[in-house]
Amino acid sequence: MSVAQVASVVRTRRRSRLSHLGVIGWLALAVIVVFVFVAAFGEALAPDDPNAIDIAYANVGPIPGHPLGFDDLGRDLLSRLLVGARSSFVGPLALVALSTVAGTTLALIAAWRRGWTDATLSAGFDIAFAFPGILLAILLATLFGAGLAVAVIALTLAYTPSLGRLLRATALRETGMEYVKAFRVMGYSDVRIVVRHVLPNLMPFIIAQAIIMFGYATLDLGGLSFLGLGVQPPTADWGVMVAAGAPALLQGYPTQTLAAGTCLVLAAVAFGVLGDRLARMWGVE
């Protein structure tokens, strides 16, 4: 088989079915579906008011009707976890959406223009890639005050170049394909070629990367919220809950911290695994 034929087989394989996800992939997908459902309908699902404080129940363990017990202020833990899903996923969603759009746009521009545009953008990606996103978030929080929006913006600045870097290499390969040259000769506009042809062919790669990125985003934003530099209390949020439960944990009541931490880790693992499996299934690792 010629190189071209091998490439063609790889490209056809993209069309493989979801059945190729494997058991673990399906499990990850199931976990994500549950999380998304909870994030959408958390309030309706919550058995109790997540913000109703009752000091009398502070750190009380499971009792009938309250399967996880109560937090340090006597709020129902299960309700707070369910309601907290939304705040824990809204930030990552915004972060992933912003950096995917920005990273894809920059990578496509670099790959399409080539030459010095590409050299400049690539150098920018490499420099920005080396600066830790969390540190940038801390710096921006100092300047503009702590909050989810600032954290998302800071991490967008860090995630964009790392996606841009990955995608540029793939986009360069795609824009070098002969069909792209043929379209230019046939008089298609640059925008048409890039938006209608190159971009859709890169979509499997972009989607897989975005899903993997979502896992990291959950942990990074959860971590910033834990530090007090992301979502602010009293909003129910998993990162905030890990921090809020720390004093109770030291006194022997670890449920809040560990339950919220488990949710974050589970989400991160599920997104990481699913992204990985999709990338493998579509042949775009």
Binding site: A4, G187, Y188, N201
Partner: peptide, 21 residues
């Protein structure tokens, strides 16, 4: 570009990459 496309066209060598998959 599209005006020139009316006069001259090209067919490349590689049948596997010259069509959008």
């Amino acid at each position: 570009r599209s005006r020139r496309a009316q006069s001259l066209q090209i067919v490349f060598q590689d049948p596997y990459s010259s069509l959008d998959p």
